[in-house]
Design a protein around this nucleic acid. Structure first.
Length: 300
DNA sequence: CGAGTTTGACCCGCGC
DNA sequence: GCGCGGGTCAAACTCG
């Protein structure tokens, strides 16, 4: 969406909500900004480099709860792509209630919001590098990737989570294939790849240098398979929900009683998910429903 | 023994 | 051209 005509984004932003610009980690694309909701402790990432196909999906989210959306729209987008904000709002909308709930239940809320982040990197995909062959001299680029061939960045999305553990359970199995020190950050960045040989999804996990309690997880690509999932139950991690939102497969993960992954527990996400999964309020759950119910089937 | 992790080396793009 | 930083590879290692 274009600028909100006649409205001073900044003023509305500050007066209409408690959202505040939370900065932009050095390690993240310049097109990404972070906002922090002082009331619910929600951290959101906004990436302006949204592409049409994703905007379509995001518009869908926008339908969920425009009331909740508004605070996000306000002040966020003096530029374009407000649909991104809508997505954030929708995502948070589905989270808002739980976020608040978790706040009251657990003291410190820890809700993260994800925004589809597509080919970011300052909006210039061409700047992407694709090493691919990487590694040792043995030439033989493992894959048939010609030298010099540019890397094609897969759709990415990221979210921030307040968590003690870095690698949060999201229903998929990952293999760590690298770790690098991040400039201007005492925390290393870890690189994970989906263990499914046919799946090219990657994931980067790092801690925010500004707030060590925040874990920034970035997914790249789409799973071409179902998650390993969990037998049954009613819990679904937010990471899983978000990850699933942008994958062709249904990503709903269940944690049988007593089998909630340690990572989820320690990341304080359990209270949130429990609320969502047990109460299933129409308005707050719809965001998650979006993960598993085709748009055309959902009630409006 | 297989799967996953660690870690140093290497490749590549970008900025200066 | 060079250095830097991000991303990846793959051998060695660890763990169950």
């Amino acid at each position: 969406m274009e600028d909100k005509e006649g409205v001073d984004p900044a003023s509305e932003f500050t007066s209409d909500s408690s959202w505040a610009l939370a900065g932009r980690p050095d390690s993240v694309s310049d097109s990404v900004n972070y906002f922090f909701d002082k009331e619910s402790n929600i951290l959101s990432e906004f990436d302006w480099n949204l592409q049409p196909d994703h905007a379509e999906q995001i518009d869908r989210f926008d339908e969920l709860d425009r009331a909740d959306t508004r605070p996000y729209l306000a002040g966020s987008f003096s530029g374009s792509h407000s649909c991104v904000a809508a997505a954030a709002a929708a995502a948070c909308g589905s989270v808002s209630g739980s976020g608040t709930a978790s706040s009251s239940a657990g003291g410190s809320a820890d809700v993260s919001t994800l925004i589809p982040s597509v080919s970011s990197s300052s909006g210039d995909d061409s700047s992407e590098k694709y090493t691919g062959s990487g590694g040792k001299p043995p030439q033989i680029p493992s894959k048939a990737r010609k030298k010099g061939q540019k890397r094609i960045r897969q759709p990415r999305f990221a979210f921030m989570t307040k968590s003690e553990v870095e690698h949060l359970e999201d229903g998929y199995r990952w293999r760590k294939y690298g770790q690098k020190a991040v400039k201007n950050s005492p925390f290393p960045r870890s690189y994970y790849r989906c263990t499914n040989s046919k799946c090219t999804v990657k994931k980067r996990v790092e801690r925010s240098s500004e707030d060590p309690t925040i874990v920034i997880t970035t997914y790249e690509g789409q799973h071409c398979h179902h998650s390993v999932g969990f037998p049954r139950g009613g819990l679904i991690s937010r990471e899983a929900a978000f990850a699933g939102r942008f994958t062709p497969s249904v990503s709903q993960f269940y944690y049988p009683h007593g089998e909630i992954p340690e990572s989820i527990i320690r990341s304080q996400q359990v209270p949130i998910e429990i609320v969502e999964s047990r109460t299933l309020p129409q308005t707050t759950n719809e965001g998650l429903l979006g993960d598993i119910v085709p748009p055309g089937i959902r009630n409006r």
